[in-house]
């Protein structure tokens, strides 16, 4: 009985492995959840076009950097530049990280659509995340306590936000809530009336309201011409200059197909 069962399982497994084509090389991507949608779309496109297996994990920019340092991924996707400490750690292990900018992303400040606030200045956002502004009424909104939502320390989006808005050294208020991905922030903001969060422009949809920062609403145009201030590049990191298939993958954002995918995903191509 048990043999028969095991046999059956193995038959299923083998039947499948026959059909799966034996691609020799795998390109492994690991890192940012912001770059995730682009990386996934590129991976699917690349697999279809060249028959090379490409796998994508979204575990945060910090993890992407760690994976590259430990040589456990081919390409690290990151929504922030590698830190000096990370580069030093990589060099120590004989890894030479090379950055490739694939797209630009606006960091959208999002609130619940029911919130009447339309615009905040950078200093107001800083005060909200510092915890000195605690009620929407102080910035011209309803009388409701602000639910501050931030990202985890592993997140590149969090680092970019700190760098661009609050300043690297500032401590974000202890009353804030931490969510572990862009999707989770969106989900939380779209279900919490008085919340504020920040996410990649590529994740914005009608369930949340994007507010203008310093009077500028983020979109393709304002991100590209620099009118929207909270903007950052998205990176792919490789160990040394890429060659062969990996190079072809890295060059995808420069092709019309790659540019098309980036634009359709709501990000800004170079």
């Amino acid at each position: 009985m048990i043999q028969r069962l095991l046999l059956l399982l193995f038959l299923i497994v083998f039947a499948v492995s026959e059909t799966a084509d034996a691609a020799v090389k795998t390109i492994v991507l690991d890192g940012s959840t912001t770059v995730g949608p682009v990386a996934k779309s590129f991976a699917i496109y690349f697999t279809k076009k060249y028959g090379v297996r490409v796998t994508v994990s979204e575990s945060g920019s910090g993890n992407g950097a760690k994976s590259l340092i430990n040589s456990s991924c081919t390409i690290a996707t990151m929504s922030r530049a590698m830190k000096e400490a990370e580069i030093a750690a990589a060099r120590k292990k004989g890894v030479n990280p090379v950055a490739h900018v694939i797209a630009f992303d606006g960091l959208a400040m999002v609130i619940h659509p029911a919130n009447p606030v339309r615009s905040l200045s950078i200093s107001q956002i800083r005060s909200i995340y510092q915890g000195t502004i605690r009620n929407w009424k102080e910035v011209g909104g309803a009388n409701a306590r602000i639910v501050v939502i931030q990202r985890e320390s592993n997140s590149g989006t969090q680092e970019s936000f700190k760098e661009l808005v609050t300043g690297k050294r500032m401590r974000i208020t202890g009353n804030s809530e931490t969510q572990s991905s862009n999707g989770a922030v969106k989900n939380r903001v779209s279900t919490t009336l008085s919340s504020i969060g920040f996410l990649s422009l590529g994740f914005v949809d009608s369930s949340v309201k994007v507010i203008a920062v310093n009077g500028v609403v983020p979109n393709e145009k304002t991100v590209k011409n620099g009118a929207y201030k909270v903007t950052r590049p998205l990176y792919l990191y490789t160990n040394g200059q890429p060659s062969g298939l990996v190079k072809q993958f890295i060059d995808l954002p420069n092709t019309p197909e790659g540019k098309g995918m980036i634009t359709e995903l709501g990000l800004v191509s170079r």
């Binding site: 492995s17 799966a20 995730g36 991976a43 297996r53 796998t55 994508v56």
Partner: peptide
């Protein structure tokens, strides 16, 4: 685990997520 990846063959279990 990865969020995107095709079905893998038995020969790939040693190298592929």
């Amino acid at each position: 685990a990865v969020s995107v990846g095709s079905a893998i063959g038995l020969a790939d279990v040693f190298s592929s997520p």
